[in-house]
Design a binder for these strands. Structure first.
Lengths: 345, 345
DNA sequence: CTCTCATATTGCAACGTGGCATGCCACGTT
DNA sequence: AACGTGGCATGCCACGTTGCAATATGAGAG
């Protein structure tokens, strides 16, 4: 077990307080005292007790990451950036999965581990803006993803409408006209899918291409299996289609798998585009064209926002809406130049 | 902020101790007192203070997961199982990435966040067994993956030798004879790659197929890019090859991507097999044949081992070696029946 | 030689909880 | 009536740390 301040103080022949001063770098300590105490600290391998510090100072050094599931590649990559970045602030990242369960989301928002965290980074799934407001005042919180909770919390996201429109425009420019969308989630209020759908429709409208229900497919969640199932529905439905824009890479990989399994050529018969730029997509066959959000920037902004909010708890700044850059990553599954064959019936 | 015991006690007209007794379910409390106190607790939304409990009781309710990187799909899926399972023990999972850096691994083993965790679940990368022993006595630890630290710590793993042999035998049975291996890591001492290589060679030897250096490819790490690079080296080397067994799914996906990019048919010209059964492989094109470890069992065993070790800190049980089941997941990239064309030169 | 000031060190208290020992009361027994 | 018993409630303390205020020491100025 590590030694505590009292034991070090005894051995060094000074008071506990002085040892504490040395440890915390308080300037008013005589150089020789500091040196002697430091030697004893090293000798006894003193490690500050986190529990005591937390109790005394109210800071735990923990930040909770609340998300639907860590096994999802997008969240995994994001968590990686967050865990790395957290070190800058001397924070440790703690993972809380909600599994998309609203009651669990609510519970975690109210208090993760008995308020023992300095802040929360939350990626909401099922909770509506209204429910987010019903939160008892506890640890600071930043939201990942655009929310309609404008003015209540900081939220960090890319411009989903613009990104979806850009991707749709890219598909149109490459010669596609029958572009389906997979990934609408009408039963959810978190707004992300709705925004992507909005960008998709905007771009179609701008190009004078009609859009409608038969090319818009709902999904329950964003797993590959959902994308696969949606693709089956789409192809079974008999609608003419020469491109599919999926609102996540996982959906896209599922959809593309089914397309190929059913004998279609990608991108020859049908182009496939995704959203998120997860590592899998880069090495898929063909490689997946996708919207690439700057995940490092997303993580960095979330952390710096949270840090500011933690340091100014008495005088909280107004909630901010931070837009992080994104770009299109054009790869084989939906290349720029045609590559399109005839739309299939 | 949440109310504390003292405030609740005042409001309820009892002592702090009695409130504490109610909270902790101590039996010697009169039913009516209990009820009254409980009502006040609910009213004031009392939430126990984790820092104080930790300081008093020495339990933090935190378990650290120490791994190379959370963004890696295998670890992401594992972390998901661990985070779910941790709830059974009222633990919260905390993520520490080492990035494969030995000094960082050492540092984290010595003390995560100032000993503030109840235990550690560690997936070592670069540390040798010898270095693992040089650990100051602190929080209990279980290792993921087979280690040569026999007798020192619990370690939970699948039988890597048997699994690799089984996959190699499967490839042989499907008619392949020139089977390359991608994923050896001679510079690492953690032993996992070495064990898989051992199983691979055993199976080849058992089938009377010679093996040698020109079909065994080293990698620096286990990313898709490493698999891709190795595949380029293999194909550029000009060796005849009709199958590739990669020691991780990520390597396999990278390798398969390159094979297809370079115009080979998978599995026609070359079969590809992986290891880990990550979700990506299931939806790859073609779907990836792989060794599937029972990740839920792995996570469950790690947690239950750790829990036992935590509860018996004074009387620690001997270190155990737990083998978790695995099975072959045969899919399109290396099917059972031939599908093999001629080996390429 | 004393007063002041800056530097250096210290003791006390408190953060919220739970273990321990003890106090108190009512009731039943001798 | 005195005593024992068991149910219930409470006060004190310690866990390790740090903020605050107070004190000790030495140097320099008047």
């Amino acid at each position: 077990m590590g030694a505590n301040l009292r034991q070090v103080a005894e051995r060094a022949g000074v008071s506990v307080r002085t040892v504490s001063n040395v440890v915390s770098g308080f300037p008013l300590v005589a150089p020789e005292t500091r040196e002697r105490v430091q030697r004893v600290l090293d000798e006894m391998q003193y490690k500050p007790n986190a529990a005591a510090r937390h109790l005394r100072g109210g800071r735990s050094g923990l930040v909770a990451l609340v998300l639907p599931e860590i096994a999802s590649p997008y969240f995994g990559e994001l968590a990686g950036h967050l865990a790395d970045g957290a070190e800058t602030y001397e924070w440790t990242l703690l993972v809380q999965q909600t599994g998309g369960d609203p009651s669990r989301e609510r519970e975690l928002l109210d208090g993760v581990r008995g308020q023992a965290v300095d802040g929360l980074i939350v990626s909401p799934w099922a909770l509506s803006p209204a429910e987010l407001t019903r939160r008892p005042d506890s640890a600071p919180l930043v939201l990942l993803g655009e929310q309609d909770a404008e003015g209540l919390y900081d939220h960090i996201a890319i411009d989903n409408v613009a990104a979806a429109a850009a991707m749709t425009t890219h598909l149109i420019a490459s010669g596609r006209t029958r572009i389906a969308a997979i990934g609408l989630q009408p039963h959810l209020e978190n707004g992300t899918a709705a925004r992507r759908a909005q960008g998709y429709r905007q771009a179609l409208a701008a190009a004078g291409i009609p859009y409608g229900k038969e090319l818009e497919l709902d999904v329950e969640s964003l797993h590959r299996a959902d994308g696969a199932a949606a693709m089956h529905r789409l192809l079974d439905g008999g609608a003419r289609v020469d491109a599919v824009f999926c609102f996540s890479d996982q959906l896209a990989l599922g959809a593309m798998h089914v397309a190929i399994e059913r004998g279609l050529s990608v991108p020859g018969d049908i182009a496939v585009a995704g959203f998120d730029d997860i590592e899998d997509g880069r090495y898929a066959n063909p490689a997946l064209t996708t919207v690439s959000p700057d995940k490092a920037a997303l993580a960095g902004a979330a952390l710096s926002c949270l840090a500011e909010r933690v340091s100014r708890r008495d005088d909280p700044p107004p909630a901010r809406r931070i837009i992080v850059p994104h770009h299109l990553e054009v790869r084989g599954s939906a290349p720029s130049n045609g590559g399109a064959g005839q739309p299939i019936d």
